[in-house]
Amino acid sequence: MSKPIVATASLAGCFGCHMSLLDIDERILKLIELVEFNKSPIDDIKTFTKQCDIGIIEGGCCNSENIEVLKLFRKNCKILISLGECAIMGGLPAMRNGIPVKECLDEAYLNGPTVGENKEHIMPNDDELPMILDKVYPLHEIVKIDYYLPGCAPRADLIWAAVAALVTGDTLNIPYELVKFD
């Protein structure tokens, strides 16, 4: 029987959730016995080469590229998981929600204390660049999400327990400590 295939991505996130995934330590050896990775920063495969079983996504959507990648994941994965606060709620990047985009861009490129010299008042506008969205969106507002793993970052044990349960078909058993944050 072929192994289930996993893909992962970090959108408007800090890669902290992926770091947490690596915190499963030596279980990573067991993980590669259990699953095969496709498009993911973990193996550096840039594009989907086959249909996947599980997509794990960190970060919300702050620009047009995030939206495209997310939709691509939905198309190529049977199950999609929102991993961590930013994917589920927008997280820290969503602090700009409620502030007009113009104010944010002015602060970032014209008025901020760390801007330095920008005499021509240039704002990045090359066609190659992703377009900034009016606000940061959680993933489930863009595509259907099947599971949510909370945390900032979600604990390694939580990610392990969830992925292992999905792959083996065992009942998911999450002790309270794994999702308790205070």
Partner: peptide, 16 residues
């Protein structure tokens, strides 16, 4: 979600 609506403001600000 409407991509056209969502990117309208920022494109206007940066001039693209």
């Amino acid at each position: 979600f409407d991509m056209n609506k969502a990117v309208a403001d920022s494109c206007k600000v940066v001039g693209r």
